[in-house]
Amino acid sequence: MKRGFFLPVVAFAGFLFLYIPIVSLVIFSFNKSKLVTVWGGWSTKWYVELLNDPQILGAAWISLKIGVVSATLATILGTIAAIVLTRFGRVRGRGLLIGMVTAPLVMPEVITGLSLLLLFISMEAMFGWPAGRGILTIIIAHTTFSMAYVAVVVQSRLVDMDDAIEEAASDLGAKPMRVFFDITLPMIAPSLISGWLLSFTLSLDDLVIASFVSGPGASTLPIVIFSKVRLGVTPEINALATLIVVVVAIGISIAWFLMRKKVKT
């Protein structure tokens, strides 16, 4: 079938639309001039400034810590929720659990952020915990919305998986715990990894919820970026964006080659 010029041209324009902003970020991160539109020649001075900015580096470190802890917690909780929903049959409260697992996916971030902040404040007034807001409250908030994504990813894997193998294991006398760790877990491991990575990215990216539930001394990277960017274009942030793009591109290419190799063999 002949397909003409229309499709390739539109697709090409679409990809340009997706990549022009990223390319312009990268190019202007090497601009000597502080004014974005005036090209002052090539320079790496914004990278030097970025690496000497304690505020950005500190925030990046806080964000990484929050990302790792909340992604790990979300993966554990989300996986348990997925198991309960796919393997436990019609237990009491199943409907409630389904509702609470899917609702965060459609909940506007401003509502999640506001409601968690008001909860933390009321809890502190009533029980004295959590004392103030900071890294801990951000971790709890991120875990809560990320676990919904993990549950969805793991659940779809569990539904596709043949449960005859699990049944065989328990017929052969394996305890439920043993079936889980020896059979189910290795089989759903890829979905746990993608769930973890998804949670980690969501956590690193989140501005709105973190802004609500963070406190003094717990400014995450997006909070710092947002406060700088609101004042206008800052080349330092372009340098940071370029570094992130490079890291992501390398990571994704490695994952892609590994996956292609696996498919071929």
Partner: peptide
């Protein structure tokens, strides 16, 4: 190429449009 932008910071990609 479609998925890649998703893994980079959303905030920074929106910010890129200010310069454009």
């Amino acid at each position: 190429l479609i998925v890649l932008p998703f893994w980079t910071s959303f905030l920074l990609r929106v910010y890129a449009w200010i310069g454009i």
